[in-house]
């Protein structure tokens, strides 16, 4: 059984079918990249899988459990986390507090009103470890809003990791990062392989082909091909629909 089984997933905005009877299987432990031209529906798919947006129909089974109709926070608690294409952090919190909040969400009740949360070392230690993993431990006590764009991308990943997901949906984690920051994030993702099942949406083809175990190609809301990086590179349908545009000749 696959960790994530998506069947006949649908979503339309008016007459536009953004997700069109989409099927997708993600195996436990793999890094499964989803590529496709702009407007193919990649971010919508992540939003549907994570529960941020509703779906018009279909099934999303995670570890055998149906997730359709469950709110985002309940899917996160079940083990499905996501990062955002457009950085989504708590700008007024420090980087450490951002990550510690994610640790807090999965460790005990948050209906505690009296003891100061900043002094809970169990939360802070795990948060610091996550920041260290993505390479911004030295920014722990900086306001998240004051970090550079690349550092915010790293923070975003640290927050997602701190929820201790079994399945992590990454929506363009490298978007807008500099070379060094991107290298760092690619290394982090490489380190996560095997330990966490990853669904990666990314425009950086070098990173995708270097990291992915399998790649699915999404065009107009449908998966037109799934395979290893080599299979995808040689697939004539894919070349026509997507890679062909870039290579042109």
């Amino acid at each position: 059984m696959s960790l994530l089984e998506v069947r006949n997933l649908r979503k339309s905005y008016g007459a536009l079918k953004v997700t069109d009877d989409l099927d997708l299987s993600v195996e436990e432990g793999e890094l499964h990249a989803i590529i496709g031209p702009n407007g193919a529906g990649k971010s919508t798919l992540i939003a549907q899988l994570s529960g941020q947006s509703g779906s018009d129909g279909g099934s999303v089974r995670f570890d055998g459990t149906e997730m359709m109709g469950r709110a985002m926070h309940r899917r996160v608690r079940a083990g499905m986390s996501r990062s955002f294409q457009i950085t989504s952090i708590l700008p007024g919190f420090t980087a450490l507090e951002n990550v510690a909040s994610a640790v807090q969400a999965r460790s005990g009740s948050s209906f505690r009103f009296f003891s100061p949360v900043a002094e809970e070392s169990a939360l802070n230690d795990q948060a610091l470890a996550a920041l260290d993993r993505v390479g911004i431990a030295d920014r722990a006590f900086f306001n998240a809003g004051s970090l550079s764009h690349g550092e915010k991308r790293q923070l975003e990943l640290a927050i997602a990791l701190a929820t201790r997901p079994r399945l992590l949906l990454l929506d363009e984690p490298l978007a807008g990062t500099s070379g060094a920051e991107a290298d760092r994030l690619v290394e982090v993702m490489r380190g996560l392989k095997g330990a966490v099942t990853l669904v990666l949406i990314e425009h950086d083809m070098d990173a995708v082909f270097a990291l992915a175990d399998r790649i699915s190609v999404l065009v107009y809301g449908r998966i037109i091909a799934t395979g290893t990086p080599d299979q995808i590179r040689d697939d004539p349908q894919v070349r026509a629909a997507y890679l062909g545009e870039e290579e042109g000749t």
Partner: peptide
């Protein structure tokens, strides 16, 4: 406070 700052982010780490 987190929900004031960014409610979607709070949902994405598991809070309602």
């Amino acid at each position: 406070t987190g929900a004031r700052e960014n409610p979607v982010r709070m949902q994405a780490i598991g809070f309602s």
